[in-house]
Design a binder for these strands. Sequence first.
DNA 1: CGATGGGTTGAGCTAGCTCAAAAGCGGTGG
DNA 2: CCACCGCTTTTGAGCTAGCTCAACCCATCG
Lengths: 245, 245
Amino acid sequence: MGKVSASSSAHAFKVACSNCNLRELCMPVGLNDQQMQRIDDIVATRRKIKRGGSLFRNGEAFTSLFAIRTGFFKTCVATEDGRDQVTGFQMAGEIIGLDGIVNDHHTCDAVALEDAEVCVMPFDRIEELSREVTPLQTHLHKIMSREIVREHGVMLLLGSMRAEERLAAFLLNLVQRLHDRGFSQSELVLRMTREEIGSYLGLKLETVSRTFSKFAEDGLVEVKQRHVRILDTDALKAIVNSQQA
Amino acid sequence: MGKVSASSSAHAFKVACSNCNLRELCMPVGLNDQQMQRIDDIVATRRKIKRGGSLFRNGEAFTSLFAIRTGFFKTCVATEDGRDQVTGFQMAGEIIGLDGIVNDHHTCDAVALEDAEVCVMPFDRIEELSREVTPLQTHLHKIMSREIVREHGVMLLLGSMRAEERLAAFLLNLVQRLHDRGFSQSELVLRMTREEIGSYLGLKLETVSRTFSKFAEDGLVEVKQRHVRILDTDALKAIVNSQQA
DNA sequence: CGATGGGTTGAGCTAGCTCAAAAGCGGTGG
DNA sequence: CCACCGCTTTTGAGCTAGCTCAACCCATCG
């Protein structure tokens, strides 16, 4: 698989979305062959990122969106005074980099939480083609809108839920997305630390740990380090909608 | 949609973006006459919304984006169990309704905090025209990306700031946006209640009120009900970047 | 094996919450 | 013009969820 530099490398070989098993996740459906062909051409290259490496960083020029092929990312923003906040965790089939469009440079960091590979899609090509292939245009708009709606959900979580609700919502969301990708509905391996979960959820790592322990004590989940088995999905759902405030 | 409810009404008369003094805020710049002409055609109608009325509600079909001409809105999402969270406050020149694109129905409520008027822009027309007028396409993408970046900022605020930092950041943001629209840099009238501010900032209304009082006591602002005069912008900025955690 | 980075757990603290009372403000009707 | 009502805001007093600080454990890896 080519020569890999420090933490990432660009590859010149061509890849085909039309053969990609993640197609339904990142590409529009219902394209004819010719349209599919043209979309294949959008993916300029792939890029591998080693665990801990970054796909892009705050301040870097924006040129491309990235479709995650394998691996797991976090995105985080930072204040001037150095605090930072995880704004999301992204997995295979998801599109990353939308934040860069508005000012032509990225405003957050995207860091690989495990070795990863992404498809590089130059944004000028996307815009060009989406003028001609209507389903692509529609798809792009929906992806951006979906991100806005997702963030609304995070704001709701951060603004009005208590610790247990937040963690329950987080677990349910993760396992749902994994299930959409063909994994178990009840078992998952966390790719991130307690601290990263805490940052995302607006909690301290100790609180995350304690809340995991409480869930385990109550028989809702089994937790062994980063391995989590969900034993009672309904109880977790009930916690999210508990309104116990 | 279509039918006019108690608190809003649709007007059939035509309006022209080209003559609108908010043009630079909601429309692309650098268009030629012919392009401008065509964009004028996007604005199908205007719609007035009385204070307290809603522009759209969670669950309603999505057909159009709205450009705020006058007035002030809040958007809020709700959990199944009835809690809700203000996700943003929108003022003249801002675009509202992007959440509806992904699933063809709205996922939040947009409520007028004062009598308001919006330009109704059918989204299918926008998509159609943005295939032909590249600056419009670019502009649409930037608007959506800007919203994503804005929400990142809110997540940072909700996830990692303390009450004083949140309120200071909120005031600075509001006054900045008002200043961009030609209003004072230091004086503003809040269009929302303490409770709505609290919801947006993830705080209780009492905490918002107390924090205002503390700022006033410290000589940073003068507060008389909803009239706020900022006396020391730099001190507010220092609070936002205090990292006192 | 020792070092290192994550994770857990305990003990005490505090920012922000809850509950409660009272006061200001704006509209309405006599 | 005044009295009243409903809504918003302020302020006080006490409480608590989640934080801080600290110790310890566990897994991995050179």
